[in-house]
Design a protein around this nucleic acid. Structure first.
Lengths: 234, 234
DNA sequence: ATCAAAGTTATGTCTATATATATTGGCATT
DNA sequence: AATGCCAATATATATAGACATAACTTTGAT
């Protein structure tokens, strides 16, 4: 059991606090001593204790309110963090060679569901792309993307036959807001063919919509090959 | 454009730095001025600048190394953060009434795949549960769970007929490690029946394994009703 | 020329202290 | 009983200065 001693770093303090929470020395829903008191107990300063508690709160163990104090959360809302790598990097990391192919490119009026979803004026032209990402020879991800060209200079002239829209957009267009969803979809005939799956197979799917200061930028549907799983440890 | 002025908070500084990154004043891969210099520019202190840069690094915009300095990441590895709420809370928040039902309870030798997955001695008895979580009258989640009773006192005596193992475990057993995966599975006959789906429907599935100081605690497979999507904004 | 030691420097963290701000609880007024 | 105001208090954030540590750079010995 970690015992308070002098010269404890904020990391040490975090650990001691965590231990006490686990051992119910500070029970769920109970209040912790004030930062001042803890600083004294740990022969530390309030600044250091503050950092420890602040981080534990960020990690979902504590709840802090001015004047109200610091409270132990009864069901720690542990937060899963997923890095969202570029497909290219995700594939490279497995050691496989990343390959890309453009399947289709078209400029077309925004379909109704897209207008509604991204708040685009009805009938506005959008750029529509379908691409494949391969890990070696195996299909890895099928990408269906819409890009709103209005606020993105040059996008209609960009060449997406050699590298994907993601690479291009990351370079050219920053975004301020992102909505990311994960869901399971059923492979239709076309998706199945591209991903080397059977029609009807369950497909892990990500949908990401990005905005730049209120303006819709792009919507991507990413269909992962069968067997894909997104994993995190914490 | 945010212009440096006196009395900037660490939040202000974060915003200015972000703006400069977006406007390529500090290009990808380039080095930022040192904390000391920035502190001077912002008429602030190194401590405050440090917090701003540290948080931006945590958020995936910057990379920091001692002596080497602070560098702009070219493809910000934005990190998606998902809160992992208890089913109970997730349902309550929608306004629907949370209901729970125990479907099956059994003590059985660990099947081979489970032994391998959780590193349990072959043939060791484990507690196996199947439960349903409803939002109002609609099925929401079908839970298939294995619990390793060895290091968990009383779990074999616990009553899971009124409330779920999740609630119980959260109260009784802290965990130190968690592996969380998301994938798409195909509803088999049994899952389909419980979730009011068709056999073969794509099912968004979570698999979580928890450990306590190296000891396996529990593995849960959570099958969500059709239409479920996990969403986050950032 | 090569490698190891020493110096330099940017970030990492701690101490000490001060001001700011949100929230609570009590008290007085309506 | 309800409302509004005020003081107390815990957290939030800032300043100033110090030492620690990692990593890059230069120097010096072999």
């Amino acid at each position: 059991m970690a015992a308070p001693r002098a010269n404890m770093s904020y990391r040490d303090i975090k650990q001691v606090v965590l231990d006490r929470i686990h051992n119910k020395i500070w029970a769920p829903d109970s209040l912790l001593p004030s930062e001042t008191d803890l600083a004294e107990e740990f022969s530390s300063t309030r600044t250091t204790v503050n950092r420890a508690l602040r981080e534990l709160a960020e990690e979902g163990y504590l709840e802090r309110k001015r004047k109200a104090g610091t409270r132990v959360l009864n069901a720690p809302v542990r937060k899963a963090q997923f890095a969202i790598p570029l497909v290219r990097d995700e594939i490279s990391e497995t050691g496989a060679e990343y390959r890309y192919a453009l399947v289709q490119r078209a400029v077309m009026p925004a379909p109704g569901w897209l207008s509604a979803r991204m708040n685009i004026p009805h009938g506005r032209d959008v750029l529509h792309l379908r691409c494949m990402h391969y890990a070696g020879n195996a299909p890895f991800q099928y990408e269906v993307r819409w890009i709103v060209p209005d606020s993105i200079p040059d996008v209609l002239e960009a060449d997406f036959s050699r590298s994907g829209p993601n690479d291009w957009l990351v370079q050219k267009v920053p975004f301020t807001n992102l909505e990311l969803s994960f869901l399971a979809t059923k492979a239709d005939q076309s998706v199945a063919e591209f991903l080397d799956a059977q029609a009807g197979d369950p497909i892990f799917t990500a949908e990401r919509i990005t905005w730049l200061r209120g303006q819709p930028v792009t919507l991507a549907k990413l269909f992962f090959a069968p067997g894909y799983r997104m994993t995190t440890n914490l």
